[in-house]
Design a protein around this nucleic acid. Structure first.
Lengths: 116, 116
DNA sequence: CGGTATCCGACACGATACTG
DNA sequence: CAGTATCGTGTCGGATACCG
């Protein structure tokens, strides 16, 4: 098996989860199930409607989340993970765990550097 | 356990591996061991010296890779993964695998859409 | 309620040239 | 060989305003 740099498919996965709010959205929907647009917005202080809409559309485009519109007034739109989207769960959880540890590791590095 | 959006640490991990060439560099060093700057450059067609240097410096900064300079003429610099950097391996491999499957999945989606 | 439309700044990335 | 330095560009994300 040749170690061909050109056939690295990490970018394919990264492209899905990269984005200021995408990991948060995915983890939130994974843990909380189905949520309305306004609930998502309320759960993410600082996000603008434009950004939330954009990130949701991109995730929907990649079949990670499902968007259901209820034709009524006032409008109601619900978002949830697709079965396929749920396959991202191990990766996201692994990154969350690694990231948590990394925060600690960075402190360790700084201490070592100071002692040197 | 509260599902607090603000304490999502996925970004911490993402910040390390995001970058046009970082996943490629990491996977290459994971698989091939220690490599010189020129070997890395030769293995990544299209990368510029500036970008390679920058990505390597950032990975070194986070203690993912190790940089060893041999004080001689002409210069020789070797790069390799740190033990800590190797802890990224499961995540990178998982993303590579997921990404490989995603390429196939996208085709499936398009077919389904056309039939609809 | 759940969106669009428009403008704008920051920065990632690239091309190119120069250096100990 | 293994880098800097400089300049240019496109995309991402934020602020703000308006709409069915």
């Amino acid at each position: 098996m040749e170690s061909e740099v050109s056939q690295c498919r990490v970018e394919e996965a990264l492209g899905i989860v990269v984005g200021k709010w995408k990991p948060v959205i995915i983890l939130y929907l994974l843990h909380e199930g189905t949520k309305r647009f306004s609930e998502l917005k309320r759960s993410m202080p600082g996000i603008t409607q434009k950004m939330l809409t954009k990130q949701l559309r991109e995730l929907e485009e990649e079949d990670i989340i499902k968007r259901v519109v209820y034709p009524q007034v006032p409008p109601k739109v619900e978002y949830s993970m697709t079965d396929y989207g749920r396959t991202l769960s191990p990766i996201l959880e692994a990154m969350h765990e690694w990231g948590t540890n990394h925060v600690i590791h960075k402190q360790t590095i700084k201490v070592v550097e100071k002692e040197a």
